[in-house]
């Protein structure tokens, strides 16, 4: 598998008058083309900071990021804006990630216009194609995003993320705000999109059940570091780090007979890389 993204010794501290937090503290990992790497960790382990660093929403204090064979951190200004289409993100706050008065057309039209993906005349047909791709109809195009349901909104968010034809999509707790049925359908959609387009995912979640369903490899984060990484099933069955054991112990177990079993340790990932 070709390496798409490699992160070397990434560091980011947040210093304020009251506190000094090393949110990301010497993080290294790599991600292959078409691969899904799950990043699991408790709240405050630095998962979201990692996402924001990768998206260049904040700048690291030290370390390197190589993306598609070139130095991602040295890009600036318009060079950076042009390349931004290659790494996209789906946000946790489903509504907050859209301009309050944006319609679906605005949300999907912007990346198409900015990156010149299709000619202006073909923009509306491309939007219709994207909507269909994520399981919505082209009739949704003129609707304000604010008026859509949570599941529909997250589909629009995914459509926006794939509009600029990225090779990597960072999903930061992308399904955490959805109910279980919707969550499964969105996960199926993501896996399907990956199969068709060979997109890589960096799937950030605190929910191991979600990560088990989509990740090829899993990394456990704790206090800004990756403490454990490997095959998803192996880690869930035999966690070697304290943080990994704590996460797995925290998964709720329910059996009708009242005898607790860890549901996490049964099934295999639904697909292979």
């Amino acid at each position: 598998m070709k390496t798409l993204l490699s992160v070397e010794n990434l560091r980011k501290r947040f210093v304020s008058a009251e506190r000094d937090v090393a949110a990301v503290d010497g993080l290294s990992f790599s991600l292959g083309t078409g691969e899904t790497l799950g990043i699991a960790g408790a709240s405050g382990s630095g998962k979201s900071t990692l996402a924001r660093l990768l998206l260049r929403l904040i700048e690291p204090d030290a370390g390197g990021i190589t993306f598609e064979g070139s130095d991602w951190l040295s890009l600036k200004g318009s060079d950076l804006r042009h390349r931004r289409g290659r790494i996209q993100m789906v946000f946790q706050d489903i509504l907050g990630a859209f301009h309050p008065s944006a319609t679906v057309n605005d949300a999907l039209g912007d990346p198409l216009r900015i990156h010149g993906i299709v000619a202006k005349a073909e923009r509306s047909s491309e939007i219709a194609r994207l909507l269909e791709r994520v399981g919505l109809s082209s009739a949704h195009a003129t609707r304000p995003v604010r008026e859509l349901s949570g599941g529909q909104r997250q589909r629009v968010a995914i459509a926006r993320a794939i509009a600029s034809r990225p090779s990597l999509v960072v999903l930061d707790e992308a399904v955490s705000a959805l109910d279980v049925q919707l969550r499964n359908r969105i996960l199926e959609l993501l896996v399907e999109l990956q199969r068709e387009n060979g997109i890589s995912y960096l799937f950030i979640s605190h929910d191991l059940a979600v990560l088990r369903a989509v990740s090829h490899r899993l990394a456990i984060m704790d206090a800004g570091r990756i403490v454990e990484t490997g095959n998803t099933t192996d880690i869930i069955n035999h966690p070697s780090s304290a943080a990994g054991r704590a996460l797995i112990a925290a998964v709720p177990r329910l059996t009708p007979g009242g005898r607790p079993t860890n549901t996490m340790q049964k099934s295999e990932p639904t697909h292979e890389p």
Binding site: L57, H82, F91, A97, P100, P111, S164
Partner: peptide
Amino acid sequence: DYVAAAKVIGM
């Protein structure tokens, strides 16, 4: 977040 999203798409 919506401003971050606009930045991410390269606006």
